[in-house]
């Protein structure tokens, strides 16, 4: 097989990856937003439950979550199981990021909103969330890089993504070097795009760093 044929063979699996990644990004964001708002509100019993959930998700490897969901919940397709487990897993992290962003908003804004007679949810959606949407992007982007990298794992439950196709192909060509290089380059490009987005936003919001590196003192 020439390189071109290899790429063509693997492109058949790219569709699944390109379905899984955007879907997972959206669902993770929504789930994380819900978790973030709930844990920011500090509901008495809920607080501890959310904390427990966070600790569990931070302690478990992605593979364990994936296998538990796949073996225990009866989903019609492996794709669905993969999507749900990625959402549950990375949603916890995104929720933590969003809660952290809410904490940076001055308390006075909540008090001002309440004294104007707005409800909690209205304050959240009209005041808090619009403010944190931009500062959150760099942190969320680095989490999404991890998510994209974790999607390589879904082949173990039988989702026919890029990795799965690549391994199928390598069973025929016996050439793991170029096979894994191709997969690696593909994921590298995908992750770098997300990283660039994060960097761009970070540059536009952060104050210019005044500190100088060591090189400026020794000419």
């Amino acid at each position: 097989m020439t390189i071109w044929q290899m790429i063509k063979y693997m492109l058949a699996g790219i569709g699944i990856t390109f379905e899984l990644v955007p879907l997972a990004i959206v669902t993770t964001f929504i789930f994380g937003m819900i978790l973030g708002i709930l844990s920011f509100k500090r509901i008495p019993l809920m607080k501890y439950l959310l904390k427990l959930y966070n600790v569990v998700m931070r302690g478990l490897p992605t593979m364990v979550v994936l296998k538990l969901i796949y073996y225990n919940a009866n989903f019609s397709s492996a794709f669905m199981a993969a999507l749900i487990s990625l959402t549950l897993y990375h949603g916890a992290y995104i929720g933590e990021i969003i809660r952290g962003c809410f904490e940076t908003v001055p308390v006075g804004q909540m008090q001002a909103g309440l004294s104007l007679g707005l409800s909690y949810w209205k304050i959240m959606f009209k005041i808090y969330i619009p403010q944190i949407l931009k500062p959150m992007i760099p942190m969320v982007c680095s989490q999404y890089i991890l998510l994209v990298k974790d999607t390589t794992l879904v082949y173990i439950v039988g989702v026919m993504d890029m990795m799965w196709r690549g391994r199928q192909m390598m069973a025929m060509t016996f050439d793991p070097i170029s096979g894994y290089l191709l997969i690696g380059v593909f994921y590298y490009i995908l992750c770098t795009l997300i990283e660039i987005l994060g960097r761009r936003v970070e540059k536009s919001i952060s104050i210019k760093h005044r500190g100088r590196m060591l090189g400026t003192y020794y000419r």
Partner: peptide, 13 residues
């Protein structure tokens, strides 16, 4: 390079 490539791919490679 190593931040943006999945660990699994590096390991298999």
């Amino acid at each position: 390079i190593f931040r943006n490539t999945p660990l699994l791919v590096i390991m298999f490679f």
